[in-house]
Every structure is written in C-alpha cells, then in structure tokens.
Design a protein around this nucleic acid. Structure first.
Length: 917
RNA sequence: GGGAGCAUAGCUCAGCUGGUUUAGAGCAUCUGCCUUACAAGCAGAGGGUCACAGGUUCGAAUCCUGUUGCUCCCACCA
C-alpha cells in the first residue's frame, strides 16, 4: 500500500466526524457508569465562531473525550443563547436596512421577524463547532428561548417574586439610548476618554455690587488667573459690572437644563461666601439653591458641583437627601425633551456642541480644559454611551444569593482553576448590588407581571403569575377587583435580562423546573466541569452557582476552568477593527482541525491569556505530519516470521514500555490538574523524541530486511497506546490511524477505547537508557566535530565499572563496531574521551586528533570542576550546614564531592597521558 | 481610589512544602546533512547575574519587606 508522504487532514476530518455522528458516539443516556457532564457556555444564537470559541470548545472537547476514554459516561450538552439585546439590535438593524422601523411594528410582528432571523442564522455556530471536532451530544441541543427553558424562566420569576426577592422600583439605571433599554451594572463598559472640562459661570441671584458673605482676605479671581484648588481662603469671581458668580466645572454642559441645585462642601474655605445663596443656571436663567454636602470633593475643579438629579447617579442621591426637584430633560432616545425648555428634540451630543458655543457667546464660559474621564458604554452596543436614567425597573435582591453562593467556593467544595479568581468572586459577592433584571426589549422572556386598571393618580397594582389565566384569578381575589376582566389586564412590556435565563442553564437543560425528580437531572447534575472566560464570572458563573443552590441545594458544577483571552502575538486583544483576528474556519482549512487545536493548546495554561500565533498551528501541522510518517514507516515494514528478535530491539521494547508507563502517569496527573498544555507537551515529546527519534531508530530493521514478529507486535501496541493518549487533543488523525493500524470491526472507534493503563516501571531501566543515550550523543558529537561520517564505524572503550545492558542499542545508534571494557585506557592511543556521570569512555581516532585542542578542552573542564568542588567543599566544611541540613542533603553534597574528585582525577590523568606523547 | 496577579533564555511558559551536580521545556537561532518514514525532516550546538535593592536562613528563582515596570478586576470624583 502506498501512503502519501504528507498528511492531508481535509480528506479525513469530515469522514470521521460523520462516522462518529452516524454511530451516535457522542450521545449519552444515563446508565450505571459514572457521569461526566459539561454544559456548553451557550454562544449567541446569531454569532459566528471566533478564536475565543475555538479555544474554549477545544478545551471542553479535550476534557470530554478524555473522560470518555476513562470509562465515564460523558455528556456534553450544546445550545445557544437568545442574547436579547445583541440579537434585537441585529434584527433592528436588518429591518432598518429594509426601511422598517421597530416603532412601526407591533410586538408580535417584530417577534415574527426576530424568530425568522433566528431560524435562518441561528445555529450556524453549532455547525461550525463540528468542524473543530466538538463531540457534543447534538440530540440534546437547547436554546435559551425554547419551550422548556422559557417555562423555567417564568417559573423562577414567579417563585422569586413570591419569595419576596423580586421588586419593582424607580431607580437610576444605566440606559442604552440606542437600544432604548436599561442595562445591568455588569453590562456597562467604562472607557477612558479624552474629553473637556467646561467651567461655567453661575451668577449669584443678587443685585450687582453685593458683598454679602465675603470675609477679609477674600481673593477676587480674574478669568486668566490660575486656579489653585487647595487654597485656604475665600475665592470669588466678579465681573466688570460688579456681579458675583460661582464657577462650576462639568464634563456635561448639556445637562444644565436639569440643574436643580449647586452644591458645595461645607468645609470648603474657598466657597463659604456662597452659603445660603441662590445662583442662576446659565442660559436657562432659573434660580437654584446652593446646598452643602460633604460628598463634594473640595479639591476637584472649583469645589462647586452642579446637581442634576435626573441624570447622574450621585446627583440623584443628593437630590434625595436634600429634597431637590428632579427635571428629566431627556427622552428615551437621548434627545432633549420639552422639560429641557431649550434645544428640544436635539440629540444630547449635538446639544453639547451647540451649548458650548452659546455659553461662550453669552460670556458664561469661564474656560475649557482638556480632561480625561471615564465614560460608560453599552457592552452590546459598543458605540453608544450609556445615560444614567431614572425609571421603573424590576430588581432581584441579591444578598440572599450572595450568602448561599459564597461559602462553597471559598472552602473549595466548588473549585476554581486558577484559584486566584476566588478573590475576585469574593469581592464581588461582598459588595453585591441588586440585579436589574428588566430590559425594555421585545426579544426575550416577557415579564409575567400583569397590571390592573387603576384610578388616575393611584399607585399601579399588579399581579405576577405564570399565565394570564392565573394572573386573572389572582387579580379577582384582590379587594375591589372582583369583576376585573382579561381585557383589562395589561402584561408588562419588558423582557428579562438574557442572563436571567442563562443562570438556570445547568438546571433547565435537564428539565429541573418541569420535573425536578427526573432521571436525567439526578444522573447528570451536578455537572463536572465548566469551561468559560473570567470576563463572565459575575454575569454567569456566580449566578449559576446561586441558582444551583437555590433550586437544588447543590452546586451546578464541581470545577470551573477559566480560560484566558485570546490575543494576537503582540498581546493585543483580537478585534475586528484591528483585523488581527484570524477566522478559525480558515485556519482549519489551511492546517487541519487537529493542528489548530494543538496550536491553541500549546500556549494556553489555565487562566493565562494566550498569545495566538499562526506559527503554533504550523507546529501542530508538523506534528501531525510526524505522526503520519511514523505510521508510514511502521506499516511499511515486512514481518519476517523466521527472523529472531535482535538484542537492540528487545532492549528497546523493554525500555519504551517503561517510558510509556511513566509518561502515561505523568499525563494523567497533569490532566487531573487541568494543566492541559503541559499534558499535550508531554505527549508531544513522548511521541516525537522517545518514540520516533529513539525507539523507532532502535528497532528499525536494516534496509530491505524484515522485522521480527515480537518487535512488530510490540511496536503496533505502542503505537496504539500513543494514539489513545493523543486522541483527546487530536481526534481526527488519531481515529484515522487507529482505524488503519490493525483490522477493525464495523462500528469500532478509538473514541471509546480506554486510555492506556499506566502500571509500574523499572526506574533502573530508564537510567540505563539515559546513560546509553548520552553515550550515543557524545559519539555523534565527536563525529560532527571531527568530520567523521555516520557511515564509518567507530570502536568505543569503556572503563570499568561499566554496565553493558544497553550495548546493542549503543552500537546500533552510534554505529559502534565494538565496545571494549577495560581497566585503563591505553595511554598510547590517539582519541577523544568523555564522561557520563563518573564513567569514562574513549573513542580511538587515529588521525583526527589535535592534542592541544583536546587538552585545552579538558583543562576548561578541569577549571569548571575545580570551581564546583570548591563550592561543595565550602558547604561541607561549614559546621552549621552539616549539623542543620537534612541527612539526605548532606549525603548528596558528599556524593557531589566524591564525584567531582573522581572526575578531576580522570581528567588530569588523561591530560597527563596526552601530553606524555 | 481599592483589590488581585505577573516579572525566569530572542518568544511563550514550567520550576509544587526553600536543598537533586552553578536553572528546564517547546518554539526561534546557529552549524552540518536531500542518511532508503518524514526538509512540515535528521544530527549537533549556542543561549539566562531568575526585574532591582535589602532581609530571613547553613542554604533563596522559591519565604519576607521595599522599589520599579506591566496586566487585569472593582469603584459615583463632577
């Protein structure tokens, strides 16, 4: 059979993925085996695969495949998230391209479009996951808005409301004016921005020339004067007409129409003259009081703060404490409302530009400074600055959940990898804020609250129930509402935050809420590992833990593996605008899925960011090719029934068997600690270095000769074990080669084989081989430096004591004709000597020797060992060391001492012998 | 402003409770090879004052303190 010299992934990957699907190898049903469960972090239903998914899902697939090969009943449940705000934004955009505005549609019409979009584009990402080999149980594919998941959400909402944990309240929320919805605190991303600090003049509401409140020593500042915020005396401003004014620094001059007070710190010496006065809002002309509150930072700006309770969280708090009026000057889309009086209908950003001009023209602008501040942006609408806005929203009380979710993580019942995220988790739970769960969106789970007709001005009444029918029943039970009709009930228009469905994911996937005692949830829950990014530790991980304990009294998963963020090789985040994000599918097409998986894993220790470089995929591809060619070699051998097993092969088989046991145990240990990249590196070295570079070279028959039965059988067995160790990392090539390694029955797969058992091994054998390989490398080095071809056989002298166990191997790999064990080397012979540990070796080389060179080399060694010995001696002559250090450490130092002494003796003897001639 | 983490070879990282011959790996580099599995390869080699400064200790990359430089998270300084 002729096998091509290069591995071509494209020809095998689809074939084996279909084979796995046809045979339902990914499908899991509860049985008597131990369950191993992972629920996928559901990607956005309309999303496409990016490098982050590639990393995350590769890790999950490795864990799942490994678990399967450990005999566990592995179940990886896939699904997608409805991602309410992101998806709704996409649908709105698509509709607007067709000239349709959302406001022109009814809720039902809009949802019809959204579902169409979801069905058309949804699930593309799940198809893409197949390309990378993901072994998800596709029969279980779920969606956060399918029937079971939706019912779960509604049940939970009603339950939490009945428990008194959900409430409705007028609060300052983060408003996304583009999507026109509230956002949770977690959905706001703050970015540093270069902006301006505007210094506005607020004239005091008093006649020109007043001096009321001024103390002696008060300084009258001119606009051009430098302003020192730390001054300890009064500072005031007076214009040419003798009118006094205060200066307020603000980044948002467009909000002055909503000002209802000016605030100073009562302890601020600069501004005491303002106490009890009223000032006039520039341009607007409205008179507002000066209030005092210690919240104001004395040294910021001028120490005067404009208070706009409707448009700033802190100002809102101030407004509450000081009973200030609240003037909401913005519409929902952040244009100015009638209440503003000025600039009505203009967008806030346009108003900012215009009002600056108008203030300057009116002489009300003291100065403008450059200023760097933080501006909040919507996480899902990246170009939209959020606006603090006061409105009625639904909240979930979080303290109860923080209380139940903190202990299990802190005491390691539920483990985080890496554990540093425990601190992050702890801090967040310690300062937990109530969760704003309502969104003014249509795409999502509609809040099951129903408002009742109420008299003008009376407080709105509502009932919360799973269905409108139940709501009506509840309503009729209320005093005065006995005759209320279905038509009079009005369901809340808002939808729930996406994460309000995601936090139930491990529960709702196994139908906990419709049937809490069902067989599946009992079997698969708690799930085993969760693999996700640290960026959603609050959004998702923490909240799943809360829901898990609240509804099942049990953790949702035993371990959380936090992946890093995929960056480019310069350490920059991958982003569309930088164009530094490769398309995973293109990479797979170019290098093969196995190679890309390996490329991702090579540099991805848990929790560390991975600096992705396409060169890593190349390394993966090269490794695939290496495996492929090893296979070609082995399958190309002719088995010779009559051939006896050569000594070198017998030794090689024994040695590699030991090696495999050792590496297998190491790999198992690394995997159990989630050190996947190190586990992969261990397999890589085992295959490339130990198996290919050493073992195969040792057993390789001479050209044209056949291989004996025993060696061939052992080699096939080793290859089989290696493929199994590799399979979780590189599923496709390992299945392809495993299927061709030996006759297989229909329906067999490497996927369901047990990982090689790792038993005891002889450490002595490994040490002997270590020495032998050192000898081989020394001889090769001699050949290289002396220009001797590997084809010319050399002879080797070994000084007693010497263990000849590996002689056959040394002869074969170093092309040595004979190994002579002697008591002393012939001082007359020309050649090169070397040492392995304290053993001396000598290669006679009649004509290649330059005595001076050899002596110089050995003298350098002498120098090295003398220095070394001096250090060791110093240690050993230190009484404190000998008395305090543990016995084994002292013994080791003595061994070093005697070894170094022997080496020095050897070297000096050899130098003397060389020079004698 | 608060908190966490990091700093070891050109790059990416191991180095666990301090002691294992004056620090390891992969990649990259250099030298020699188209040797009959593989040039996507083979053989060999070079490369580090473990960020800096103190301290603890018989002994420190490892523990402590400080300094510097990065990274991330949280927080309402207009």
């Amino acid at each position: 059979m002729e096998i091509p010299a290069k591995y071509n992934p494209a020809t095998v990957e689809d074939k084996w993925y279909s084979y796995w699907l046809e045979n339902k190898f990914f499908h899991s049903e509860p049985d008597e085996r131990e369950a191993y469960t992972i629920v996928i972090p559901p990607p956005n239903v309309t999303g496409v695969l990016h490098m982050g998914h590639m990393l995350n899902n590769t890790i999950q697939d490795i864990l799942v495949r490994r678990a399967r090969m450990e005999g566990k009943n592995a179940c990886w449940v896939p699904g997608t998230d409805h991602a309410s705000i992101a998806t709704e934004a996409k649908v709105v955009k698509k509709l607007s391209e067709k000239g349709i505005r959302k406001s022109d549609l009814t809720r039902e019409e809009f949802l019809k479009h959204a579902w169409e979009w979801t069905e058309e584009h949804g699930g593309i990402i799940l198809k893409q996951l197949r390309k990378l080999g993901a072994s998800c149980d596709w029969d279980r594919t779920a969606f956060t808005m399918d029937e079971e998941r939706s019912n779960s959400v509604i049940k939970v909402f009603v339950d939490l409301y009945n428990k008194g944990l959900i409430y409705r309240g007028l609060r300052m929320v983060n408003w996304d004016p583009k999507a026109q919805t509230a956002l949770s605190n977690e959905e706001v991303i703050y970015k540093d921005e270069q902006s301006k600090l505007y210094y506005l003049k607020y004239y005091v509401d008093e006649p020109a020339g007043s001096t009321d409140g001024e103390e002696e020593g008060a300084v009258v500042l001119k606009p051009e004067d430098a302003f020192d915020p730390a001054v300890k005396h009064q500072i005031l401003h007076r214009d040419a007409d003798g009118r006094r004014y205060a200066v307020v620094a603000t980044t948002r001059p467009e909000t002055i129409m909503g000002d209802t007070a000016m605030c100073i710190n009562p302890k601020d010496p600069k501004n005491t003259w303002l106490k009890g006065k009223r000032v006039i809002v520039p341009l607007v002309g409205r008179s507002i009081p000066v209030i005092e509150d210690r919240y104001v930072e004395i040294e910021f700006g001028t120490g005067c703060l404009k208070v706009t309770p409707a448009h700033d969280t802190n100002d809102y708090m101030l407004g509450k404490t000081h009973n200030l009026e609240t003037i909401d000057i913005f519409n929902a889309d952040a244009t100015l409302s009638e209440a503003a009086g000025l600039y009505v209908g203009m967008d806030r950003m346009a108003v900012r530009k215009q009002i600056v001009v108008d203030l300057e023209n009116a002489g009300l602008m003291e100065k403008i400074e450059n200023y760097q501040n933080k501006v909040g942006y919507s996480e899902r609408n990246a170009d939209t600055a959020v606006e603090p806005r006061l409105c009625m929203q639904w909240f979930l009380k979080m303290q109860h959940f923080a209380d139940i979710a903190l202990p299990p993580v802190m005491n390691d019942e539920l483990k985080f990898y890496p554990s540093k995220y425990k601190t992050t988790y702890h801090n967040w739970l310690d300062n937990i804020q109530d969760w704003c769960i309502s969104r003014q969106l249509w795409w999502g789970h509609r809040i099951p609250a129903y408002f009742l007709p109420a008299a003008e001005g009376a407080e709105e009444k509502f009932v919360v129930a799973e269905t409108a029918e139940k709501a009506l029943e509840l309503a009729k039970a209320l005093p005065g509402y006995e005759n209320v009709t279905m038509e009079q009930l009005r369901q809340d228009d808002d939808a729930l935050d996406t994460w309000f469905s995601s936090w139930l994911w491990p529960l709702s996937l196994f139908n906990h809420f419709s049937d809490p005692d069902n067989k599946e949830i009992k079997y698969y829950y708690p799930t085993c590992d969760l693999v996700t990014g640290p960026d959603i530790i609050f959004f998702w991980v923490a909240r799943m833990i809360m829901a898990g304990y609240e509804y099942r009294g049990e953790m949702p998963f035993k371990n959380v593996y936090f992946t890093g963020i995929v960056r480019d090789k310069l350490g920059r985040k991958m982003s569309k605008s930088l164009g530094n994000s490769p398309d995973p599918l293109e990479l797979i097409a170019k290098y093969g899925a196995d190679a890309v998986r390996m490329g991702m894993m090579l540099s991805a220790p848990a929790g560390n960011d991975i600096l992705f470089d396409e060169a890593l995929c190349e390394q993966g591809r090269n490794f695939n090719n290496k495996i492929w060619n090893a296979f070609r070699l082995v399958k190309g051998w002719n088995v010779d029934e009559a051939a006896a097993q050569p000594e070198s092969a017998a030794v090689a088989v024994k040695w590699f068997g030991a090696m495999l046991n050792k590496a297998g145990a190491e790999i198992k240990d690394l995997l159990s600690k989630y050190r996947l990249s190190e586990a992969l590196m261990a397999v890589y070295k085992l295959f490339w270095d130990d198996f290919c570079a050493w073992y195969l070279e040792m057993v390789k028959p001479a050209y044209g000769a056949g291989i004996d039965v025993a060696t061939y059988g052992a080699t096939i067995g080793f290859f089989d074990s290696l493929l199994k160790l590799l399979h979780p990392f590189m599923p496709f090539i390992t299945e392809e080669l495993w299927q061709n390694l030996e006759e297989r029955k229909a329906g067999e797969t490497i996927m369901l084989q047990n990982a090689p058992a790792c038993g005891e091994y002889e450490t002595e054998l490994l040490q002997q081989f270590e020495d032998a390989s050192q000898i081989v490398m020394n001889v090769r080095n001699i050949r290289q430096t002396k220009g001797i071809s590997p084809k010319d056989a050399l002879s080797l002298f070994a000084k007693e004591p010497y263990n000849a166990a590996m002689d056959a191997v040394i002869k074969k790999l170093a092309n040595i004709s004979e190994i002579n064990v002697v008591a002393a080397f012939d001082t007359q012979a020309q050649g090169v000597n070397f040492m392995i540990r304290t053993n001396e070796f000598f290669v006679p080389l009649a004509e290649h020797i330059n005595v001076e060179e050899e002596v110089a080399k050995m003298r350098a060694e002498v120098e090295y060992y003398e220095k070394f010995l001096k250090q060791v001696n110093a240690k050993l002559s230190n009484e404190k060391f000998v008395n305090n250090a543990p016995e084994n450490v002292v013994a080791l130092e003595r061994k070093k001492q005697s070894d170094a002494t022997t080496k020095l003796e050897n070297l000096n003897n050899r130098i003397a012998a060389l020079l004698k001639k």
